[in-house]
Simulated assay, not measured.
Amino acid sequence: MGVITSFKQNFSDFFKKVFRKKNARIGIYGPPNAGKTTLANRILRDWTGDAMGSVSHIAHETRRARRREGVTIKANGHSITLDIIDTPGLATKIDFHEFMEHGMEENEAKRRAKEATEGVIEAVKWLDNLDGVILVMDATEDPYTQVNVTVIGNMEARKLPLLIAANKIDLPESSPSTIRDAFPQHPMVAISALEGKNIDNLYEEIAKRFG
């Protein structure tokens, strides 16, 4: 019986290796306004000349997960083809008053808050279908937030390969070392998705980490 079980397992592993999906599905996650869509746009523009979507200073501007297939990244002898998934900003609570602070009417603010909440639920469900995650954090903010700790714990429980992008190093108050010290168990690259600083280092790490 043990021999049969071992054979089935070996055959299953071989089958998965031969017929595995061509593209690695990589989700870009993080709290609101960390720069997820800016990073997704940077990756797509660098490798396809296209863009994922619009960027806004208003939190939760991305309210639905967006996917772009077949993005090939080549870096330092490594090559990987990705399906890039840009997700809504993860938050433990979304208050419609946040939208009203940007001049929206109450009905519109409530609609946006509802959509954003549904988007967060959708983003969490996407984790079941991913091969890895790029977690974008704002290097100007304290990394010890409930959202960051919860998200990382969730991904660790799922055993998803995780790469942290400490974003916004173009700002003088940024401190990517704080993020590294907070989560030393995961690789981290300090970048500016807006200006492209250190973006080549990120591509190298993506190709090595998820390839």
Rank of each mutant, 00 (worst) to 15 (best):
G2K: 08
G2N: 09
V3P: 02
S6M: 06
K8T: 13
N10C: 09
F11H: 11
F11M: 14
S12T: 12
F14D: 15
K16N: 15
F19S: 14
K21C: 07
A24R: 13
R25H: 11
R25N: 10
I26H: 02
I26S: 01
Y29S: 05
Y29E: 07
P32E: 14
P32H: 11
N33L: 11
G35A: 10
A40Q: 00
R42E: 01
L44C: 13
L44N: 06
W47K: 02
T48S: 05
G49A: 09
D50L: 00
S54W: 06
A59N: 04
A59I: 01
T62C: 03
T62S: 13
R66W: 01
R67V: 13
R68F: 09
E69F: 04
E69V: 04
G70P: 00
T72D: 01
T72V: 11
T72K: 11
K74I: 08
S79V: 06
S79G: 09
T81W: 03
L82N: 00
L82M: 07
I84Y: 02
I84C: 07
I85K: 03
I85H: 03
A91C: 09
T92V: 04
I94R: 05
I94K: 05
F96G: 00
E98D: 10
H102D: 13
A109K: 00
R112N: 08
A116V: 05
E118L: 14
E118N: 11
D128Y: 15
D128N: 15
D131K: 13
G132V: 13
G132D: 12
V133E: 05
I134M: 15
I134P: 09
V136M: 03
M137T: 07
A139R: 12
A139G: 13
T140H: 08
D142T: 04
V147K: 08
N148D: 07
V149S: 11
I152R: 13
I152F: 15
G153Y: 11
G153V: 11
N154M: 07
K159E: 12
L162G: 10
L163Q: 03
D170T: 04
P172S: 14
S174F: 06
S174C: 05
S175Y: 07
R180P: 06
D181P: 02
A182I: 07
F183K: 09
F183N: 04
P184W: 05
H186T: 07
M188Y: 01
V189C: 10
A190F: 12
S192P: 06
A193Y: 05
L194H: 10
D200F: 12
N201T: 12
L202R: 10
A207C: 13
A207I: 05
A207G: 08
F210S: 04
F210P: 08
G211M: 02
